[in-house]
Structures are given as C-alpha cells and as structure tokens.
Design a protein around this nucleic acid. Sequence first.
DNA 1: ACGCCCACCTGGAGGC
DNA 2: TGCCTCCAGGTGGGCG
Length: 273
Amino acid sequence: MPELPEVEAVRRMLERATRGARIDRVELRRPDLRRPFPPDFVSRLTGHTIQSISRRGKYLLATLSSGDTLLVHLGMSGAFRTERRRASSRISPPADPHDHVVIALSSGVVVTFNDPRRFGLMDLIHANHDHAALRGMGPEPLDETFDALVLARACAGKRVAVKVLLLDQRLVAGVGNIYASEALHHAGLSPRRRASTLATATGTPREAAFKLAAGIKAVLQKAVAANARAYESGRFRVYEREGKPCARRGCRGTIRRITQAGRSTYFCPACQK
DNA sequence: ACGCCCACCTGGAGGC
DNA sequence: TGCCTCCAGGTGGGCG
C-alpha cells in the first residue's frame, strides 16, 4: 500500500518494532526483488543496530550503527510484518512463498518483507553517499518547502496533464495514483487540465496552483493522521468511486473514471474544472 | 528536455 | 470447473 501515507504508517510501525535492536540474522529467500540485492547485503546488515527509520517520498530508510543506510521501496505490493520469534525455531517458518526477506532482531522480533509482485527494492547506501533513487526527488509535500510557488515553477510550460505530472516524483515526493486523484478533487481542478495552466509563463503561481498545493497537503495530512487506513475502509472521495455521487457538499455530479498515461484517474466532471 | 509507451511480476475478479 | 482477459496503489528505460 505504497503512497506517502501508507509508507509513513509502515515507517511508524517499523520504528516501534525495531529501534535500538541489533540485526542478528538476515535471510534472503531469493536473489532479487525488482533488482538483485547487492552482493554484500547480508553481511553489511548483520550485527549492526537499527538507530532510526525515516522516510523520503515513498522510500523507507533504516539508519544503521555502521553508518550504512538500508533503503527500501515497497513497490506495488510490498509489506512488512513483525512477530515475536518462536522459542522453538531460530527464524519464522516459510509460511508464504512471497516472504522474500526475513530479519531476526536481538529483541526477539522477526521482521518479514513480503512482496507478491516483486516491484519492491532494497539497497544499501554507504555512509556519506547518496543514492540514484533519491537524487532529484522533489520536496516532501508536507514540508514548508513545498508550496504553490514550487508547484507552479514545476508546472510552467508543461503541456502534460496535471494529474500525470503529479505522479512524477521529481515534482513532489510521495504522491501516487490515488492521492493524485484525491488532491485534484479537493482542489476542484480537472485532472485533464494542462500543467502549464497552473502558472504564468515565468512560473508565477495562478489561483489553481494555490488550490492544488493546498489540496495535496490536505489529503495527505488527513491520510497520515488516519494512519493510512482509508484504503481498507474505502474512504476515498473519488478513487474507485466510478458512477457514485460526488461527495462534495452541494455537488450533484457523478464520479467518472478515465485513463491517463495508462493509469486510472477518478474525478467529478461537475466540480473539477 | 519532453511526452508517451512499455516492461517488470503476480494475483484477483469477471466474462464465457 | 477452467481458461481467458483485464486490472492493480510504482518506477524506469527507450523511443520519437
């Protein structure tokens, strides 16, 4: 469940479950996810302590006592679960064929990474180095560094539909297909609108840029506060609500689904202009 | 640089 | 029951 709010919920869970514990054992059940694990992956994790878990966009970063950072992306279907180690076995049994990585901690907690589609990613970043995946990533949408001005500058001159541009992690980090639709609905903007219409030619924000920046912050903030439980409860305003009435107060529109850049977009033609 | 398309991989849902 | 097609929340490479 991997857009910013879902990744943030995973971060909180992992931080509670792993912080301060030493990695006693790492088991790779296959040689790769989306890409192969680095050759020294297991040895560079084993014996080191997890100091903190942070997040950048949709990436999780575990800072280790060695100075290395474990980088994780959940892809489309990646998930972590944690459990107390069984007294009888050193490591949890291979219950699921998609349990690809099993990490046993000194605390007795076992962390398992499960990912059926295997679009996930794990890599190690050496101390004081950066990583190609994080280079060029846009600002955190919930930081003050992200606002209408930043958004407008990124939109200026772009002919692409604004919804498609929102999926570009170089513009803003962590927005995916669900929250792109939700943010545009919140802002009352059509997903089909050209990105360039949010800014003047020189990148000065128009009214729509203020609305969209606020919409992105509002939907993400709300989802983070709810610990990203909206997906399970189906509590979105437009996402997967094709044919249902628009949830906006006073709007009599019906939610439509269209395809943009090969992905589903949901919106209300009546109140999103 | 930009915008578009496709591939990566598995599983679930729905049609016939 | 089975077989087919389509769809899914992400990313990145390649093409014109």
